[in-house]
């Protein structure tokens, strides 16, 4: 909390020069998330303060500002495939490649985002699961692109990799906000960004970004890097493990 106090006073500095817009002082509960042996996911707390000009919260009757937080994982190039029934079998038929699908995307807001911002603004800031800029790598008709994008979003929502939670941001006394974001065990590793948007009257007043890193640690990291960069030795170790366990069990059984 001391850090926030200090940042608040730092953030207040420009206000003294006479800025009229409120500013954001955001933070996240963890700057790194380590994936270790019993990782079943994590919960990220995004919190901070809205600093209004003059240092006081909006009065009753005055329109309060809203907060939207977005946590985003590294972008991936993905191929989305659609199954169709061909000769009695459900198999992958059409596919569409997207060059920049976020590997993780969670949004939380103090009110549903479609009530806060118009479609154009949401598209600019990529706010909302229907406003992701996926950059399809083909010239498929728009209807088809939308269908595949909806399929991608639905699937990742089911896996917990995409999430949206309207009303999940609590604002206390119009000044302090916080939101909990669930990170599932399936999460990819890499650099994540946590963006906070301050919104009022259909405008984004302030944006603040924090970065965090999700990485495998300890044994898990060792295994993952070995499998990738020393794959031949890794394979030998797996084979040796299978042979010795199988042989050992046989040996024990013969003695018993």
């Amino acid at each position: 909390m001391r850090r926030i106090g200090r940042s608040v006073s730092l953030a207040l500095a420009p206000l003294l020069i006479g800025a009229a817009k409120p500013v954001l002082v955001p933070d996240v509960s963890q700057r790194t998330i380590d994936i270790a042996y019993s990782f079943t996911g994590a919960e990220l707390l995004l919190f901070g303060a809205i600093v209004y000009p003059g240092g006081h919260a909006p009065e009753r009757g005055e329109d309060p500002a809203d907060i939207i937080v977005v946590v985003r994982g590294p972008v991936q190039s993905v191929t989305v495939r659609e199954k169709r029934k061909i000769a009695g079998i459900w198999m992958n038929a059409d596919n569409l490649r997207y060059r920049s699908a976020p590997s993780y995307y969670a949004i939380a807001s103090s009110r549903p985002v479609d009530q806060l911002l118009d479609e154009k603004t949401r598209a600019i800031y990529e706010i909302g699961l229907d406003s992701l800029q996926l950059s399809p790598a083909s010239t498929a008709p728009i209807a088809q692109q939308d269908r595949f994008a909806a399929g991608l979003v639905a699937l990742r929502r089911k896996e917990g990799l995409y999430a949206d939670a309207p009303d999940a941001v609590e604002i206390a006394d119009g000044v302090l906000y916080r939101a909990r974001i669930r990170i599932p065990a399936l999460v990819p590793v890499g650099h994540f960004t946590a963006e906070t948007f301050l919104v009022r009257d259909g405008h984004v007043l302030a944006v603040a970004t924090r970065t965090l890193t999700i990485r495998k640690s300890g044994f898990e990291r060792f295994v993952a890097t070995s499998a990738d960069s020393r794959s031949f030795i890794y394979g030998l170790v797996v084979v040796a493990l299978s042979v010795s366990l199988g042989w050992g069990a046989g040996w024990v059984a013969r003695r018993a």
Partner: peptide
């Protein structure tokens, strides 16, 4: 599994 309509018609591969 092959003949039944799958719950998810879409699949995603990271490329």
């Amino acid at each position: 599994g092959l003949g039944w309509r799958p719950a998810d018609l879409f699949t995603v591969d990271v490329t």
